[in-house]
């Protein structure tokens, strides 16, 4: 019996959200992209985590390689060696990548990046162009490598025998110890870090605030806005470079100065040309990055609300004084 709650979904609303793509190609929009275009796009959008050749950086996923490793110790599971359907690659890149900038790629860009991932796995040649028309012709090497869960047949009968209660084995010996590997995080670390942080905060509040210090309420608001930046940028003590550089001390400093970060040529040039990150330039950059540093690498849609920009700049300032 229906309660008559909710309202009919409009066609535009369904179109906006129903974008999943199935193995038979259902859901794929028209479009195409070449390996050559994909190589450029991959370098700009994906390589910081996945490597220029899709070989992976640090613990980020490797997207290429691993042929014939699935039955070995530590298999390497990549698009080429493991993924059964190309539709999954298109769907995932389209909806979820790049990390921190999901749903910013055009359909043609997604086709091109998927084409490049195929190329990096030696599944197509460098002239290849992937399109809606030829999508189902691409053969995925591990398409036949999956079986539907067979635990009910294979395991359940074996593991449903009445269990032994007494004298179940002749002897018992220790064969492996966790202490030998010693990879467990320090038990008290989180607690100690927390109390140190509290101490620091207490110490800071007892120091008289400088006249020019940012408003604490605005800083707190900025910390919230900064979550949008945190996918790529870290700030504060112990921060390390991620997709983007550390932002500690960035306020009132020249552009491209964070040590050890590989900036785009455009950003390096801007720094050498005298770009200083003050209130005005940061505000403009955060609104539309490409207006301040054309051809820079920051793929961020920008903060359209002036209040958000003011708050996040106050937050950045709080790490510069």
């Amino acid at each position: 019996e229906k309660l008559g709650l909710g309202r009919p979904a409009l066609p535009e609303e369904i179109a906006a959200w129903d974008v999943d793509v199935s193995p038979d190609g259902a859901g794929l929009p028209p479009g195409s992209g070449s390996v050559a275009d994909g190589e450029v796009l991959f370098s700009e959008n994906c390589a910081v985590c996945h490597g220029e050749f899709a070989e992976g950086v640090d613990n980020w996923p490797k997207l290429a390689g691993g042929d014939g490793t699935l039955a070995r110790e530590d298999p390497l599971k990549t698009v080429g060696s493991y993924w059964p359907y190309l539709s999954t690659v298109w769907d995932y890149v389209h909806r979820t990548m790049p990390f921190g900038g999901a749903q910013t790629l055009s359909d043609d860009e997604v086709y091109a990046i998927v084409a490049y991932i195929l190329y990096s796995n030696y599944l197509v040649d460098d002239e290849f162009v992937l399109s809606q028309e030829n999508f189902l012709e691409v053969e995925m090497p591990n398409a036949g490598g999956f079986i539907v869960d067979d635990r009910d047949g294979v395991e359940v009968p074996r593991f449903s025998q009445p269990p032994c209660m007494n004298d179940c084995k002749d002897s018992v010996g220790i064969t492996m110890r966790a202490a030998v590997l010693d990879v467990t995080p320090d038990e008290t670390a989180a607690g100690e870090t927390a109390s140190e942080a509290v101490q620091v905060a207490v110490a800071e509040t007892t120091v008289p605030a400088a006249a020019s210090a940012p408003d604490p309420a605005l800083v707190a608001q900025g910390e919230k806005v900064f979550r949008e930046c945190a996918a790529c940028h870290r700030i504060g003590e112990g921060a390390t470079h991620r997709v983007g550089p550390i932002l500690t001390g960035v306020y009132m400093r020249a552009a491209a100065q964070a040590e050890g970060f590989r900036y785009s040529p455009a950003m390096t040039e801007a720094g050498e040309g005298g770009l200083l990150w003050d209130q005005t330039t940061l505000d403009a950059y955060l609104e539309r990055p490409a207006d301040v540093v054309p051809r820079g690498r920051m793929s961020f849609r920008g903060l359209s609300e002036p209040g958000d920009r003011e708050a996040v700049i106050a937050y950045l300032r709080s790490f510069s004084e």
Partner: peptide, 24 residues
Amino acid sequence: VESREETSKYTDTLADGTSRKWTW
């Protein structure tokens, strides 16, 4: 749909290299 989380992840590779899927 065979999305990323039900193909490339959350599938269980056996000793012979084949993988179980839909192990819910």
